[in-house]
Design a protein around this nucleic acid. Structure first.
Length: 729
DNA sequence: AGCACGCCGACT
DNA sequence: GTCGGCGTGCTC
């Protein structure tokens, strides 16, 4: 006697599928969503495999099949792949793709529509006449919509339904997205844009009608800020729509704004389905269902959109490919850009990675021929890139406690005199990054972290930017009690704003940073004000580096280009270069040409030199070479795994490939496929490690440090995700 | 995830 | 003495 057995993967932190007996008469297929008993409760899972088991045994039985479409094979393979690659339990990876119907997803409240029957009402009133006049065309309208259109309350409509003048009909569920029209009238592309779009279209794997199919793969679309990359990939999306395959456009959550959706609507005549953390409940389910049914041709979404159940995914665009926001580092750690590449490969879809400042790893992949590369070398509409010049701070006469050089001050004055805006960029929130007592030298430090407390003068507080700890700015020194003798050391944006106000008392100044008082709503209004030219000088942090377009902005002043260059992060140079290139690139995107002045104490530093000369190619080549010299791979490939012999056996039982390095911390092993992220096993505990640095030596010292503090002190730790997935495909 | 079991500190 | 904190293990 044999019996049908389903191995069901449950969306919990479980690494193996559980076996259930399939009751006779229940027709199951792999990928089906099923309800199953688990301990004392019922839950859902996905049939991962089906097999014949020996003699009934004592397996519990599958309760029922859930009336939802099953997971298609590519998505199941993605789940397996991600679990293996990130060392997350398979069930956790599945949870990302399954996102259970939220609580209270009342089985789709059927919307009711009404239509005129042609019958005459038993009584006529002015309100009824209005409704009947509107409904006379015989079209189906929503109850509410009909009342609204006729300018009467819905009770009139109800009355007419009772009177058989209107009949109720079931209405198709509300659309979450209007169908995009690939041929909606739009501004033509420039010559270089057209060429780039054609090159990308040639990679689409879905064949053109009567034409040939491309071979897919990954293409880097690189273009300076303002080159019009978005229009280019919109064109590729349009072609995918024409060919009847679905497209996914991934963006960092913050870039997924109404402004962007409007841009999409301007090109396609309809807003796309938008998927991000703010989309909840019913809408979420609709989008899932629409995507699964193939009715939604284009989704624009943040990270998690990667796990939507596309039916025929033909194109994935990853906008702002270099953005760190693509890294998920809680739960299952992954890099959405890399997982997009993996998913596309599994779905045989083409990938476009778009960026003005591509990450090193993507450049390396392009240079090695693993990715294709398409470049838009110039700004759209003949606009020039801003001229960038260094301000050598060693030669500027700087009064104490001042941060605007005479050169920059003069440039601001000229710019404003022409009626144009200036942006002063300093990537430091608050008033001063360090506060100390003049009498005793006491430095205010965070009680939780090892960081200095940052003075926020506006809030009259000392704040830790690491953990959020805040305390009132003291009147007397906490250590020696001296009154009113605190010194603010170094500048933050608030202090710069103060200096600007003193130097240019008649100018309108706006300070923009993520802790903007009044929250996101007011911040948006403020950005709008800047865009409309309602201020003369903007002082901002990294927040102003991207997003909103400021057409009146013609001068960007970088107050301290050296911030960030000295940090121990192996990506420091790359990050700083990208940030400065973005910020300076904000100048001159409107009618008038722009320029940027970069205050620095080390104008010969490769990052600064590359920024000034505009020679990004050289910088990246040097940076890649420098990493090789330092023993750092061009991207975060972990070269070795730490293993303790005592645990090796158990690890191998898990089927993990292991390698050993010298001098492992005692009692510790790290396991995972060679070169993949690491999971730390200590005793019976399993931890994941976040290792920012990408060198073996750093991982080891980090491990030791972490172990010294112990799991109690530290909670859980995770391994980085800067690993190249291509080597595992 | 939920739930049970067990071990330690701090209280009516 | 107990109550309950969470650390740990288990669910086919």
């Amino acid at each position: 006697m044999s019996v049908a057995v389903a191995d069901v993967l449950i969306p919990l932190a479980l690494d193996t599928a559980y076996s259930y007996a399939v009751p006779a008469g229940l027709d199951l297929a792999e990928g089906d969503v099923v309800q199953i008993p688990l301990g004392p409760r019922e839950t859902v899972g996905v049939v991962w495999s089906l097999r014949e088991g020996a003699s009934g045994g004592n397996l519990r039985r599958v309760t029922a099949k859930v009336a939802e479409e099953g997971l298609r094979p590519p998505l199941r393979r993605l789940v397996d792949w991600i679990a293996r690659y990130t060392l997350a339990p398979k069930g956790s990876a599945l949870a990302m793709a399954l996102r259970l119907p939220e609580e209270g997803t009342r089985s789709e409240v059927a919307r009711i529509g009404v239509r005129a029957t042609g019958a005459a009402p038993s009584r006529m009133t002015p309100a009824r006449a209005k409704v009947i006049a509107v409904a006379a065309d015989g079209a189906v309208r929503g109850k509410r919509a009909l009342g609204l259109e006729a300018g009467v309350s819905s009770s009139v409509v109800e009355g007419l339904i009772d009177d058989r003048v209107l009949e109720a009909v079931a209405l198709a569920p509300e659309r979450v997205a209007e169908p995009p029209d690939p041929d909606h009238p739009h501004a033509p592309l420039s010559g270089p844009q057209r060429e780039a779009a054609d090159a990308l279209i040639a990679t689409l794997t879905a064949p053109a009608p009567g034409g040939t199919a491309g071979e897919g793969g990954v293409t880097l679309l690189e273009g300076v800020t303002g080159a019009g990359k978005t229009e280019v990939y919109f064109e590729v999306v349009a072609e995918a729509v024409r060919r009847g395959v679905q497209s996914l456009v991934l963006m960092p959550e913050i870039a997924l704004t109404a402004q962007f959706l409007d841009r999409f609507a301007a090109r396609f005549g309809a807003r796309p389905a938008a998927w991000h953390s703010g989309i909840g409940g019913r809408r979420r389910e609709r989008i899932r269902a629409g995507v699964a049914a193939g009715e939604i041709p284009v989704v624009v979404g943040a990270r998690s959109a990667l796990f939507l159940p596309f039916r025929t995914l033909g194109l994935v665009v990853v906008d702002e490919e270099h953005e760190a926001a693509y890294k998920q580092d809680d739960g299952v750690c992954y890099h959405a850009r890399d997982m997009a590449v993996v998913r596309a490969k599994l779905e045989n879809a083409a990938v476009v990675l778009a960026s003005a400042t591509p990450s090193i790893e993507t450049r390396v992949n392009a240079a090695r021929g693993r990715y294709r590369r398409v470049v838009l070398p110039e700004r759209f509409g003949g606009r020039r890139l801003p001229e960038i010049a260094a301000v050598d701070m060693r030669r500027e006469a700087m009064p104490r406690g001042r941060y605007l050089s005479p050169t920059l001050t003069a440039a601001i004055a000229e710019t404003n005199a022409r009626g144009e805006q200036a942006l002063l960029f300093l990537n430091r929130r608050g008033y001063a990054p360090l506060t100390l007592c003049r009498a005793c030298g006491h430095r205010y430090q965070c009680p939780n972290c090892s960081t200095w407390l940052v003075e926020h003068r506006f809030r009259r507080a000392l704040v830790c930017h690491h953990c959020g700890h805040a305390e009132r700015r003291p009147e007397a020194c906490a250590a020696c009690g001296t009154l009113d003798n605190l010194a603010a050391c170094g500048p933050g944006v608030e202090r710069i704003a103060e200096e600007v106000a003193a130097t240019f008392p008649d100018r309108r100044v706006i300070v923009l940073s993520s802790d903007f008082p009044g929250g996101a709503e007011r911040l948006r209004a403020e950005l709008q004000t800047v865009a409309e030219g309602g201020c003369d000088i903007v002082v901002g942090t990294q927040l102003v580096a991207k997003g909103h377009n400021f057409p009146h902005l013609t001068l960007v002043g970088v107050l301290d280009a050296d911030i960030g260059l000295a940090s121990g992060d192996p990506r420091a140079a790359e990050r700083t270069f990208q940030l400065l290139q973005q910020v300076t690139g904000r100048a001159g995107r409107g009618e008038k040409p722009g320029r940027a002045l970069v205050q620095t104490y080390q104008p010969e530093h490769p990052v600064i030199a590359a920024l000034i000369s505009g020679d990004a190619e050289r910088f990246y080549a040097e940076e890649t070479a420098a990493r090789e010299v330092a023993g750092l791979p061009p991207f975060g490939r972990l070269a070795a795994l730490i293993v303790s012999a005592a645990e090796r056996e158990a690890a191998e039982a898990h089927g993990r490939a292991l390698a050993q390095v010298a001098d492992p911390p005692p009692g510790v092993m790290v396991l995972g496929p060679a070169e993949a992220p690491l999971a730390l096993v200590r005793g019976r505990h399993r931890f994941r490690l976040l290792v920012k640095a990408e060198r073996e030596v750093d991982i080891q010292s980090y491990l030791r440090d972490w172990l010294a503090r112990g799991p109690k002190a530290r909670g859980s730790v995770r391994v980085g995700i800067d690993v190249d997935p291509q080597s595992f495909l």
